[in-house]
Structures are given as C-alpha cells and as structure tokens.
Design a protein around this nucleic acid. Structure first.
Lengths: 218, 218
DNA sequence: CGGCATCCGGGAAGATACTG
DNA sequence: CAGTATCTTCCCGGATGCCG
C-alpha cells in the first residue's frame, strides 16, 4: 500500500502499514455503522480534505478493507462500505478509545460524530452492570437516527429509527455524551435545550448510569 | 502534543493524536517487555532514524506514556520505560496484530524483533487449547533472553534467563516464528541451523501446536 | 454536488554528518 | 553511546478546476 513501509514481520507493524496513515482509522470509524457516501464521510470528518479522503479510500480498497459499491438506478450513487475483514477492525477502534479515555489531555468538548458516540457506547459497555435491564432508546442527531437497546445483558446499536422505543432523544452527540460520560443532569440538559426527550426519562437515565469514567492517568 | 490534531472529542481520535504518529506504537512495542536504552530502540527498529526517535520519545514523555530514568552511578545510563498507563496500551498492540494476521499482504519473512515475537505469543494465545499443559521454555536471541511458560492455562513471557526450563532454544525470532506460525518442521529448522534446541523437543513442539493461523481475508 | 485530478505551501519524516 | 544539526524528500492540507 504505502511505499513507506516499516519492513517488519510483526503483524502489528503490518497493521500500521495498512491503516496507520493519517485519517485512515477515522474513515473506518465512520463506516462502522454501515455504508456511507463520499460527502457523508467528508461532513463527519472536519479537517479531512477531499484529495486525502480519495487517497485513503483508494488505499483501503486496495488493501481489501473497503469496498465501493454503485447502487443501481435510479439511485445510481456510489457508496463505500467495509468488507467483512474491515468490520473486524472494530475492536481496534474500541481498544484505542478505551485506553485514551484515561488521557489527561482528552478534551470532551470538541465535536463528536454520531457514529463515534455509538462506538463509545459499545466500547465502554459492561454487561455485569445491566442487572437484567431492558430498554430501547431512539436517537436522532440531525438527519441520522440510531436505535440503542439493552436486553439480557447485551447492547445493540443500529442505524435507523427505533420501533416503539421506551424513550426518544433529539440533540447532539456532544450533549448525549455530556449526559452519559460527563454525568450532566438530564433536567439541566433539557432546560438548556441541548437535548429534548419524549418518553421514559428514567429509562434514559438508567442507561446513562451504566457508564462510569475510569480515573485519569498520571 | 502534535500540533496537527484531529479536533475530535472521540476518544479513539484522541488516541491517534497521542500515539498515531509514525513509529510511535512500534517504539511502545519495544518498551512493552521492560526498559530499554536509546540504542536498543534504534537497533530493534531498523529504518527509524535518531532524530525521529528523539521526537517520539519526547512526545510520548510529554503525553505521560513514557518516562525516562537515569540509572544511578556507576551505571549512570539513561533508560526509557513505559508508565503504568503506557503499559495499559498493550491490548492496542495485540488487537492490531490479531487483526492484521488475516491480511493477504502480510509478509512473515521480514525481520522480526524479539519483543514482537513475545507479544505475538500473547496476542494469539488461547487458554482453551492448553488442556492442562505445563511447560517452561528458555529463548535466546543474540544478547536477549526470554522465559516463556504455560501453566494452568496462563501464558507468562518475561525478559531474562529461564531457570530450569524444560527446553532451551537459540536462534532468531524469525526462525521461531516459522516453527510456531509457519508450521515449519522443527527437525528441518535444526538441520538448517536456524534453531538450536537442547532439552525436551516435544515440549517445544506442543507449545508451537498451541497456535493456529486464522484464514486470510479476501 | 459527487468524485477526482492538479498545483502549491508548510511541515513531518528520513538520511547523514557532527558533537559531548 | 546518546543524541543534535542540517538537508532533502515526501506527505498532508487547502484551493482550484474538470467532468458527470
């Protein structure tokens, strides 16, 4: 792929040859919840310029991590999606995220993409904390909707509108992260208009209470 | 750290801000089995030039991942070691390695550092396969020695000379990888002089048989 | 507008030489 | 041995423009 290789038989080094270039893993992150279009990726990754995105998609496609698909007419648009093997890279993203949560330099006030929020739910989920909890939450972040459920100690996160959810939340991923990770009071977030909630607020709060932040390092 | 940041609240993106620069994760890899000196790192990471290594060590130190320690006289040399939090990054390396093992482009004939071999043992170890096996192996790769043991379904890998091992192996990490991952016949490797073994060859073979390669992707 | 070339400035990476 | 200084090369990031 990249001409600048590590020339190292270690599989970890080879992984970095494949996906160690700037933006590559974040492009993969945005594809983790399903296919996306060129413009979607560009919109979710501010700072990534079009030419670099083109290069990354080419590289990832050549490596067998991303596949491009042209939808049949009348849609006739091109989408990018992860291959099966590309999807298997999810633990890499989750492990990186879990580790960096302890960084003293981490600034949670920066922009937060919807997909990143969903993956963070997966990364920090602990089945042992659910105690038989069952809940289905519908999220709406602008145009993007997600259904998040907990059932029998298993977390499910899917793109799409939730059917008959216990509670529906509209707002920004940042505000939702403030509730879950920053432990901001739900009533306060609603009062500010950062989140608007319809349905079972207590269920949403129970979901947020599943998550606790590890102590900072150093 | 790096002035070129992703400006993204996602913890995964922040991780890449911290350790996403070229060579950073491989420097951390070489520190995973204990403190090392500047020259050790350079020797293990061919292609990494001194100025870049200096920059990475400075950056990792500023981020709280690496600590530099000056040994007291008469040694009086400087060593670099991972902080506690830096050590916690090990799952990142293992996850990357496990994923990349399925890459069709992976070339296992390239140079292989001793530490990389030890970490690969950890990454691909499966307790369920050990079936009560107990074995202690001493490895010697040039100046570097390691003790690798399996006991009660737990793998231990430490730097240093093994005491009363079942079997001792001298050779290169690549040759050992050929035995374990390439399933090269031990007798053949010995005949070629790639490995020299004293002690219980069957125990070494049983250890190698713990490992199976997953199918390539694509 | 989506996708992808092209050009350019700045900065990081890579090789070499040099210093205590 | 452990870095530092310098120079070159190449990648990244931004802008522009071309086509469907």
């Amino acid at each position: 792929m990249s001409s600048r290789t590590y020339d190292d038989a270690c599989a970890t080094a080879h992984a970095l040859d494949l996906i160690g270039e700037r933006w590559a893993l974040l492009v993969m992150r945005e594809l983790m919840m399903g296919p996306r279009r060129f413009g979607d990726l560009r919109a979710s990754l501010s700072g990534l310029s079009a030419n670099v995105l083109t290069q990354r998609l080419e590289g990832l496609e050549a490596a067998g991590i991303v596949r491009r698909r042209r939808l049949p007419p009348p849609a006739n648009v091109q989408t990018y999606e992860l291959t099966e093997w590309g999807l298997e890279a999810e633990p890499i993203l989750l492990t990186l995220g879990k580790w960096a949560t302890r960084s003293p330099l981490h600034d949670p006030t920066l922009p937060f993409s919807p997909v990143a929020l969903m993956l963070s739910f997966r990364a920090k989920f602990e089945a042992a904390k659910t105690k038989g909890m069952t809940v289905l939450i519908g999220f709406r972040f602008g145009e993007e909707s997600f259904a998040v459920g907990v059932r029998k100690g298993v977390l499910s996160t899917e793109r799409g509108v939730a059917v008959a959810p216990d509670v529906e939340v509209t707002g920004t991923p940042s505000a939702m992260a403030g509730l879950v990770y920053g432990k901001a009071p739900l009533a306060e977030l609603e009062r500010q208009g950062a989140l608007s909630v319809t349905g079972d607020r207590a269920a949403l709060q129970r979901f947020a209470d599943l998550y606790v932040m590890p102590p900072k390092a150093g």
